[in-house]
């Protein structure tokens, strides 16, 4: 029994169909990310859950109750916005207490809950400040506390980290995940940043043109992309045109190098792909010429030209091993499991 069910949601704005046929079940306490480029419909789905948009067709069910026709203020949903959207005329404590006040929680109980929430986000002493006196990261934490204070049934996060700078983004995303796990609150997180989605989600829904391309754990999304779009959008991918020599045994040829994949393949030509960290320089494999070397500290990033395309290899830094020089002729290989066969 799923806690939050999105049942064949569709949304059109005039003649434009933004969300096609969106189906998703979210377990209680689960953290699900909607990942996709801008305009893919992820925010629209979130807004339909919140009640700010009415679905053209389909249902939103929370805890067994159909809320599709309920107004946003009746849905008991907590929402955090990209722009923080703190109320500028209210103090931090008043902001956090706003939802409790609308719910008619008595003053004393409200004060206790507000203090509890401020402690949870690590800003126990800032209750008397106004939003403009806080940094962006602090404001977003207050917004999170405000959304959580009335104990919503579902927490919706609409690109909450996009307006922050890189360092705060990482620490705040970890904090969001910690709080979410601590409260075991069902959460939907919308982002266009794959690293964000991979690092904090239980499951990811990769969206593309109003359709959920793939739903799965971060590892599944990254290691077994179901569509060409997912493969290309999440992470970097090196692609090779391959000719299938033996469909039954999974033997293919790329640029004269034979690769045994050990899985059944369609006959003809296919596209093989490998992540930068799956590729390595080997004695046997696809011939390539190194074109560039970047030293990134823990990782070395090598650029090479193979089969007429740019490829990228990542490998861990090893102090004793010399970096290949640009112009060096090498051969590239990957472990069997490292090769992805792209559909379509």
């Amino acid at each position: 029994m799923t806690f939050l069910t999105l049942d064949h949601l569709q949304k059109s704005f005039g003649p434009t169909r933004v969300v096609h046929d969106f189906d998703l079940g979210v377990e209680k306490g689960e953290f699900v990310s909607f990942l996709g480029p801008s305009g893919c419909g992820k925010t629209t789905v979130l807004r339909m859950v919140a009640g700010f948009e009415t679905p053209t067709a389909g249902r939103v069910v929370i805890d067994g109750r159909d809320v599709t026709r309920l107004r946003p203020n009746q849905r008991q949903i907590g929402m955090v916005f990209q722009s923080y959207a703190l109320f500028p005329n209210l103090t931090v404590a008043e902001n956090v207490g706003f939802g409790l006040r609308t719910a008619g929680v008595p003053r004393a109980e409200r004060a206790g809950r507000v203090a509890e929430m401020l402690a949870l986000i690590g800003l126990p002493d800032l209750g008397g400040r106004y939003p403009w006196q806080l940094s962006g990261g602090q404001q977003q934490r207050v917004a999170l506390a405000r959304a959580l204070a009335p104990r919503p049934r579902v927490l919706l996060l609409d690109e909450p980290l996009s307006a922050l700078d890189a360092k705060i983004r990482v620490s705040l995303r970890n904090q969001i995940r910690e709080i979410q796990q601590q409260l075991a609150i069902t959460t939907i997180f919308v982002t266009h940043d794959q690293e964000e989605a991979l690092s904090i989600s239980d499951r990811i829904v990769v969206m593309h043109k109003g359709i959920a391309d793939q739903t799965g754990t971060p590892a599944q999304i990254y290691n077994q992309p179901a569509t060409d779009f997912v493969a290309g959008f999440v992470g970097t991918l090196n692609r090779f045109e391959a000719e299938v020599l033996d469909p039954a045994r999974g033997l293919v040829r790329v640029e004269g190098a034979e690769i045994a994949l050990d899985r059944p393949l369609p006959a003809g030509r296919i596209t093989l792909a490998a992540r930068p960290e799956s590729l390595r320089i080997a004695a046997e494999g696809i011939p390539a010429e190194i074109t560039g070397v970047e030293f990134l500290g823990s990782v070395q990033r090598l650029r090479a030209r193979a089969a007429g395309r740019e490829v990228v290899l990542d490998r861990f830094n090893e102090p004793g091993v010399a970096l290949p020089q640009p112009g060096a002729q090498v051969r590239l290989a990957a472990a069997q499991a490292g090769w992805l066969v792209l559909p379509g």
């Binding site: 919140a50 700010f52 929402m79 959304a147």
Partner: peptide, 10 residues
């Protein structure tokens, strides 16, 4: 945003 934030808070 302010309106939507307030609405989501009931």
């Amino acid at each position: 945003s302010l309106t939507e934030a307030a609405q989501s808070l009931g």
